[in-house]
Amino acid sequence: MDTLPGQIEQLLHIIEVSIILAGFAAMVATFQSRKMESISRGHVVSLAMIVYISLCSALLSAFSLTLLNFHVEAKHVWSISSSLMGIATMGFIAYLWKKRHFKFVSPIMKFTYYGLFGIASSIVIISTLNAAGIVFEREFGPYFLAYICNLFFVGFAFARLLMRPLWKSVEKKEASRPHIERARRRR
């Protein structure tokens, strides 16, 4: 969508989706924490990732809309917003890199996390290029791409947050099954 009204509509949808994801994550975390004896670091980092990225995305989108409402030229809005998005994404990378603990993570998840760090780093580069008017012409597309990637990361973290307790329950049940089978054989 090259038209400004279409871009504004997309920013409004980003705000809505971001707030909905943060709210659902908070509800899931609240109900899961009541049933869990211990909450893992991964659980908390996933929740933090969802909340921080979602709410920051909503805030940046609202900031862009605010600038547009003050009749700032669209190119300047996308430039300013792209630079702020690059800074925010770099902050998310630093936060998650600091909080990561790969000691207890499977090799597949390590590979996945490094891939996500790579994608996030490319978003920082694209945002910086868009803000500076290099390669991109201070346009909406690269800025919107950063939102899509952020929502992808939030969706990934949300799926892990939602599925982790279920998988732990299944693993616990499967681990106890050999004992049940041995008990049946003894009868």
Score class of each variant (00 low, 15 high):
residue 113 Y to P: 00
residue 96 L to N: 02
residue 154 V to P: 01
residue 60 L to Q: 12
residue 129 L to N: 06
residue 85 M to F: 06
residue 20 I to L: 11
residue 88 A to G: 07
residue 36 M to E: 11
residue 157 A to N: 11
residue 182 R to W: 13
residue 102 F to H: 02
residue 104 F to V: 06
residue 69 N to C: 05
residue 86 G to D: 09
residue 161 L to A: 13
residue 80 I to C: 01
residue 106 S to L: 10
residue 50 I to W: 02
residue 2 D to H: 05
residue 163 M to D: 02
residue 54 S to Y: 04
residue 28 V to K: 10
residue 93 I to R: 01
residue 178 P to H: 09
residue 109 M to K: 14
residue 175 A to I: 10
residue 112 T to G: 01
residue 150 N to M: 05
residue 161 L to C: 12
residue 117 F to S: 02
residue 172 K to R: 13
residue 51 V to P: 03
residue 108 I to V: 12
residue 176 S to W: 15
residue 123 I to W: 04
residue 100 R to S: 07
residue 147 Y to L: 05
residue 163 M to P: 05
residue 127 S to W: 03
residue 162 L to S: 11
residue 170 V to Y: 11
residue 80 I to E: 01
residue 75 K to G: 00
residue 156 F to Y: 14
residue 74 A to D: 14
residue 121 S to G: 05
residue 42 G to L: 15
residue 32 Q to F: 11
residue 128 T to M: 11
residue 145 L to M: 06
residue 161 L to K: 04
residue 167 W to I: 14
residue 92 F to L: 02
residue 22 A to K: 02
residue 91 G to R: 03
residue 65 L to C: 09
residue 97 W to K: 01
residue 60 L to H: 15
residue 145 L to H: 02
residue 5 P to L: 13
residue 73 E to S: 07
residue 43 H to D: 08
residue 29 A to E: 04
residue 70 F to G: 00
residue 163 M to L: 14
residue 92 F to P: 00
residue 23 G to R: 07
residue 107 P to D: 14
residue 173 K to D: 02
residue 20 I to M: 09
residue 51 V to F: 05
residue 1 M to K: 10
residue 37 E to R: 11
residue 88 A to Q: 06
residue 122 S to K: 00
residue 129 L to K: 08
residue 177 R to Y: 15
residue 121 S to R: 03
residue 97 W to A: 06
residue 108 I to C: 04
residue 31 F to P: 00
residue 137 E to T: 14
residue 111 F to W: 10
residue 181 E to P: 03
residue 74 A to V: 06
residue 52 Y to V: 02
residue 175 A to Y: 15
residue 119 I to T: 13
residue 131 A to N: 00
residue 100 R to E: 11
residue 103 K to P: 01
residue 116 L to M: 14
residue 104 F to P: 00
residue 162 L to W: 08
residue 170 V to N: 08
residue 20 I to Q: 02
residue 53 I to D: 03
residue 80 I to K: 00
residue 146 A to K: 04
